Computed example of a mutant assay.
Amino acid sequence: MRVPIAAMALTAAGVMAMAPLAPAQAATGYVVINDTRYDDPSGCYPLNHLDRAFVVNHTGERAYIYHDPACTRRFLAEVVPPGDTEVFWGAGSLRID
């Protein structure tokens, strides 16, 4: 019996559509921004252009520093590598995924 290619493709697409999507993963560990600890951080954390932002990155991911408070504009090209501590002046936000 011959099954048309289109029918096989539709069957495969249906099976794939029923497969669960993998959830977004947070970084494992914690980040400290000044005196506040965030466990298993994920996303954007505003730094509110603090005079000084003391960042401790105890995750396996890089933390990126942005100029604006919403992690959307002008990445400052500054990174807090995993296991590192940095101090930033006038930064707007931190993103870690």
Rank of each mutant, 00 (worst) to 15 (best):
V3H: 02
I5C: 04
I5W: 10
I5S: 14
A9N: 06
A9E: 14
L10D: 02
L10N: 02
A13D: 13
A13T: 14
V15L: 13
V15M: 11
M16L: 15
A17R: 06
M18N: 06
M18K: 07
A19C: 09
P20Y: 00
L21H: 08
A22W: 08
A22V: 11
A22S: 13
P23N: 05
P23M: 02
A24G: 08
A24S: 11
Q25S: 13
Q25F: 07
A26E: 04
G29S: 10
Y30G: 12
V31Y: 05
V31M: 13
V31E: 11
V31D: 09
N34W: 00
D35W: 03
D35H: 04
T36G: 03
T36S: 11
R37M: 11
Y38A: 07
D39E: 15
D39M: 15
P41L: 00
S42T: 11
S42G: 14
G43F: 00
L47M: 13
H49R: 12
H49C: 07
L50Q: 10
L50A: 12
L50W: 01
D51K: 07
A53L: 03
V55W: 00
N57A: 01
T59A: 03
G60P: 02
R62E: 00
Y64A: 10
I65D: 01
I65F: 01
Y66N: 05
Y66W: 11
Y66D: 03
D68S: 06
D68A: 06
A70K: 07
C71W: 00
R74Y: 08
L76F: 01
L76T: 08
A77I: 05
E78W: 01
V79R: 00
V80D: 00
V80Y: 04
P81K: 09
P81T: 09
P82A: 05
D84K: 14
T85D: 02
T85R: 13
E86C: 06
E86I: 02
W89M: 10
G90A: 04
A91W: 06
A91I: 02
G92W: 02
S93A: 02
L94V: 06
I96C: 07
D97V: 10
